[in-house]
Every structure is written in structure tokens, then in C-alpha cells.
Design a protein around this nucleic acid. Structure first.
Lengths: 139, 139
DNA sequence: CTGTTTTTGAAAAAATTTTTCACTAAGTGG
DNA sequence: CCACTTAGTGAAAAATTTTTTCAAAAACAG
């Protein structure tokens, strides 16, 4: 099922700004900030407003089509989200991101922590930071 | 070794704003934003400037005494950091945080991912979100 | 103490995000 | 295919958050 259908089913309309944001993120090889998405998006649709980028990102994120990436310094980068729970692998050099599934790999750790702390764990955020193979070679 | 000594060894001076920020975070039971730290800090030292809170947090974070917490909506919360690598367990209801060690629990997962993606993983960010025991009972 | 250098607070600037509002256009039901 | 309803839009303004600048203050080494 394509993103347009998924968005429709979430009760949201398919509009120009949303199409442009998705298009930009589909092409991107690293997380992009709202500003960057806006700048690139205007090359497709001159009239695209920055406010609409913010709003589109909020809607798309809620629909699970897009997700925010957390870096030490910046937390305003967005990438396309695959359906289901995925973790992110981020290259600290070139910014490239790779998603990988793996909720189950943490279940042992989570069970252990729940026992020790009394918390009930509902969700998690896992991001790995390192160097992708091209960047390993060139450094 | 106390934080003052650790900061000295990092070549930084022990100053009033840094002492106040540490004192506030030591008392805090949840991540506090720079604004919140500033407001509470002024009750200890009326002259404390917001800018100095930002600067103190930057220095203390660099020295590993303090760390930023990433939430879905906000990423401006700071908590005290224990020495060494720790993960964070965060209650989504009351904001309480608990740190726990556990870099080793991920080593299998990381090795697997390095093999599959060619990345060289250097660091990671793991945060678990859930409900602490008091909040489980009261909901 | 005294001198050197870091650090501070205030003000201003820059940057980011949200709100408001009149207008536009998406998608539904004729 | 058209008209209607309502969600969504762009621009401007407002609100927030963070950074820069700079003269004055204060850490701390000697």
C-alpha cells in the first residue's frame, strides 16, 4: 500500500505540500530539516510555504510515514519511515541513514529491566551511530 | 571523585552558575529544560542568567556530568549523568527517569547489524519509554 | 595578593516553531 | 461533472528558543 493510500485511510487529504515533502524525503540520502525540505521543495513548487512543511511533517509523522531522527546536536532531521518498528543506523560522517527491524532483539533486555525497576516498558528509541562503509574507507 | 573535581580536571573552573545547575539537577526527579533550570536556579542565586545556564549545560555535558534526554516532542531536557555508558528509562506520565548500565546487552545486536550493513558502529542512543510503578498503579 | 584568562549577565540578534486568518482546493454526494 | 463542505494553504505576525557580542566580574595559578 502506497503512502497516499495510507494517508487517505488516516482521514487526511492528499495535497501538494504533502506530496512534495514525501517526494523530497524519498530522494534524500540523509535526514533533512524542515528548512532544507522547504528549500528543496520550492524547486518543485515555488509556492510551497515553510509553514506547510511543518504541518505536513506533523501529519505525515502521525501517520507513520515519516520519522524524526535524534542526533546529539540536532533533532530536527526527518527521514522516510518504513512501516513497523525500526531502528536507525546513522553515519556520523555523511549523515546517511539505514533502518533495520529488530524490536525482538531487545525483548530480553527489556524484560530484565522491567523486573529490576518495576517499570512497564511500552516503547523505545534506539539509534546506532557510526561510519558507513564508504566513509570508513575514506578516512 | 566528585563532579567539581571532574570538571577541574577537564580544565574548567568551578563557578556559581555551574554549581547552581548541578544542584538543581541533583534535586530534580525528571528532565528539566534550560528555562526550568533557570527559573529554579534563580531561587538560589537571583543573579543567575539564562545564558549562563545554556553555557553551563554545554560545558557540563561535554564533561559527561550531564546529559540530554530525547523525547518524541521535546529534546531539551537535561538530567545528571552517571559516569560510564548508561541507558535511560523514562516514565511517560510523570517524567521520572532511571539510568541503567547495559552497553553489553546490545553487543550481539550490534555485531549482527555491522555484519549486515557494513557500518562500523561507534556509539548508540537507547531510551526506553513506559510507566514507572507508581504511575502504573494510579492509572 | 596580583595578574591572566575564563566566565558572567544583559542586550541584541538570529533561528526556529506556532498562531492567526482570509483564501484555496480536495474529495464527497449529488 | 459540478457544487458544497471542510481540511488545508501561504503569508504575516507572534512566540520561543538559542546564539552572539561585549564590557565587567571572578576564578585560580603563582
Amino acid at each position: 500500500m502506497g503512502w497516499e493510500e495510507r494517508l487517505s485511510q488516516a482521514g487526511r487529504r492528499i495535497t501538494m505540500p504533502r506530496r512534495v515533502v514525501m517526494q523530497i524525503l524519498q530522494r534524500a540520502s540523509r535526514p533533512l530539516s524542515p528548512q532544507e525540505i522547504h528549500a528543496r521543495g520550492r524547486r518543485i513548487h515555488r509556492s510551497l510555504g515553510l509553514v506547510s512543511v511543518y504541518r505536513a511533517l506533523a501529519v505525515l509523522e502521525q501517520a507513520g510515514l515519516v520519522r524524526r531522527v535524534h542526533q546529539e546536536d540536532r533533532c530536527d532531521g526527518y527521514i522516510l519511515a518504513s512501516p513497523g518498528h525500526h531502528h536507525i543506523l546513522l553515519c556520523r560522517r555523511c549523515g546517511r541513514t539505514v533502518e533495520f527491524p529488530g524490536a525482538e532483539d531487545l525483548s530480553g533486555l527489556i524484560a530484565h529491566i522491567e523486573r529490576r525497576t518495576g517499570f512497564h516498558v511500552e516503547d523505545h528509541l534506539l539509534q546506532l551511530i557510526g561510519l558507513c562503509s564508504p566513509c570508513q574507507r575514506s578516512s
